[in-house]
């Protein structure tokens, strides 16, 4: 997604990602309850499954998008001086970028094995 997505597109993304995050989280919780207790190999085999893997990656990406839009919204309201807002937004962007990189590294390690 573009950092510039604002107004209608940001609002829509916020809602779409929210729906996905909710559906994914609920499914995960239900799966955990059904299969409790779960051991390491159980976790490993499930998250290596391509469908689960991809939906998990989408989950994290949605989470990052959701966080970006949401926190940016709050900063637009409350962080008035543009310099402060810029610094905070940059920090947020860097943080989300690091998280995304980490996510990709995990995916690569899973796919290699």
């Amino acid at each position: 997604m573009s950092l510039q997505a604002q107004g209608m597109r940001a609002w829509l993304l916020q809602r779409l990602t929210a729906v996905y995050i909710a559906v994914y989280s609920l499914s995960l919780i239900i799966w955990i309850i059904i299969n409790y207790p779960i051991n390491y190999s159980g976790w490993y085999s499930v998250f290596s499954h391509p469908v689960i893997l991809i939906s998990t990656v989408i989950f994290y990406l949605s989470l990052f998008v959701h966080a970006w839009v949401g926190i940016r919204d709050i900063l637009v309201d409350y962080a008035k001086p543009s310099s402060v807002r810029f610094i905070l937004l940059t920090a947020l962007a860097l943080f989300l970028l690091v998280m995304t990189t980490w996510l990709l590294l995990i995916v690569i390690s899973l796919v290699k094995v």
């Binding site: 107004g7 209608m8 637009v76």
Partner: peptide, 12 residues
């Protein structure tokens, strides 16, 4: 005219 981050989407 109403699209964009401010004009309408400040409404929470």
């Amino acid at each position: 005219e109403l699209d964009g981050p401010y004009r309408m989407f400040r409404c929470h």
